[in-house]
Design a protein around this nucleic acid. Sequence first.
RNA 1: GCCGCCUUAGCUCAGUCGGCAGAGCGAUUCACUCGUAAUGAAUAGGUCGGCAGUUCGAUUCUGCCAGGCGGCACCA
Length: 652
Amino acid sequence: MTTGFDLFTDRAVVAMRIDGKLLDLAREVPEGTTPEPVTIDSDDGLSILRHSAAHVLAQAVQKTNPDARLGIGPPIQDGFYYDFDLEEKFSPEDFKGLQQEMQRIIKSGQRFVRRVVTEEQAREELADEPYKLELIGLKGPNAEKAAEGASVEVGAGELTIYDNVDPKSGDTVWKDLCQGPHLPNTRMIANGFSLMRVAGAYWRGKTDRPQLQRIYGTAWPTKDELRAYITRLEEAAKRDHRKLGRELDLFSFPEEVGSGLSLWHPKGAVTRGEMEQHARKRHIERGYTYVYTPHITKSDLFETSGHLQTYGEGIWPPILMDEERDDEGNITKRGAEYYLKPMNCPMHILIYKDRARSYRELPLRFAENGTVYRNEFSGALHGLTRVRGFTQDDAHLFVRPDQIEEEVTNVLGFVIDLLKDFGLTEFRLELSKRDDEKEKWIGDEGVWTTATDALRRVAQSSGLEFVEEEGEAAFYGPKIDLKITDAIGRSWQLSTVQLDFNLPERFGLEYTAADGSKQRPIMIHRALFGSIERFFAILLEHYAGAFPVWLAPVQAVGIPVAQDFAGYLEDVAAKLRMRGVRIEVDHSDERMQKKIRNHTMQKVPFQIIAGATDVEAGSVSFRYRDGRQDNGIPVDEAIERIVEAIETKAHV
RNA sequence: GCCGCCUUAGCUCAGUCGGCAGAGCGAUUCACUCGUAAUGAAUAGGUCGGCAGUUCGAUUCUGCCAGGCGGCACCA
């Protein structure tokens, strides 16, 4: 018999692929097949490494905590986790001991040995592992639905147990229900792993099930790659918008105001204002009309829209108005309940509905930077990206069915143009389609089909990378989402274009067609930034705080070499202000070097320095954030260069 | 919301095995007037997140609450 070990002697090969299936190297290679090698640094190889590391973690946990019961332990992006049920709580202090135990297991060079078992056998061997028994009961086609990651334990095929065998004694020292494949032995995990954090996680992802303790780890083929990963995390932490927001004095979340409610300081507000004004200008160019609506409304609107019924727990509790009671407390006058608005659309719909509409008016495009309030779970809040009060750059387009394709094409082109203005360059589209198995959708099947087809054509002709997602659509219509990749390769979902057949129906929207008949318009909900606050946070992280000049809160700062030259710089600054440049002159009692350091750390794009030499020559000297300098630039030219950098949205 | 951890000066963080707290940066003042990432000195600044409890005594121990962080769940 031939095994993978016979075919692949390179130590970097950790598994093989036959007919698309990943197999242990110890498996027999069937006659007439040509296995492909899977190396440890490939995507599949890394997953195998990480999955094996998860097993080693579980073994170490059960060695040090024999009462720990096993959940699941799959590989994930950059690492792995394993869930445990254990009375005592893990803390990061336990990691040192666990890592030492893992190191001991790794060094002992245990082999991962696959063994096919019957269901009875598995149940008997794993009698003390209630969660594994539950998974055995779910094996087969249900496995993937059991929980994200559960298919690594039980898949569609036969049940298997992996024995960890000590190479010296030949004894099985530990075992786990698992589909594999695994590394040939634990030694290949080497030094490239680290435990990262511990967290709670619901068993099989449901809040009504027990909460297990999840230990996250990372694992890499070499120690250098582990170090590089840790460095990457540190770099990401440096550009965390919450940290930059404080350091650059952009915004804050005072406890006195409430969780998830942001205050915008002058510098943050300047940048945000630039963003809003730019977007506003572009919207008007594209035929949008701005509207304004209140932040609070009677309950009727959100009952009609269905939001109150569907998203009730995310809506802030009502404010009761105008209720009157007699001395016994009986209601003598019924009050009205008002809600903070969680959505802008019903208000825009009422603007549409305020008078009869003709087919000639469509498409109508109502835009608003509408601030909405949602009662997010406290644990969901995160900086500016998940808040309880935020502003959508929201627009609602009312179109005839025959206008869908053209309008969505327009919107998509618009989205991309606008995001490019902000310096984003990598885009991907995602078309979310109806889930045919779910009955819960509204609207005529034919409309769904034509709308989905229209969206697909638009997506395809955009030339962007594009995927279709089955069953991800809202119940009221298909949608296209746009994702961007930021400067350090992270992906963010920003814009969304959603077709809605539901709200026009619920609100009884109509227009009069050319033949005099009443027709129902289709609504397109679209947001480009999504949430202005969140988009600000994404840009802040994308640029690590060093905005392009047009967005920088302070675009230039004058630094006199000594106090005597401050007046000269004030003259230059006055001229720049006349050209709309945001400039300050630093009159603080610091040495020039210190000022340069301060403003560099504040990420000011242009530092304008002048001393005796420049004053005599009628020039100034530029210093940029990255340390470059341009000396002796005549004042007029300096002004032009700064103005041009702003106008061209340059990043200096 | 759930699990775990955290909360000390404006910021970043030490510290007190229970005896009313400290650094760096920042702020203020003074001296210095300087050519490309930190001049020096002095001063001010804290009911140690809040409320209870234990104790002769609580910033330190316990409980509850609030806020934050990491996940889970949620995300119109």
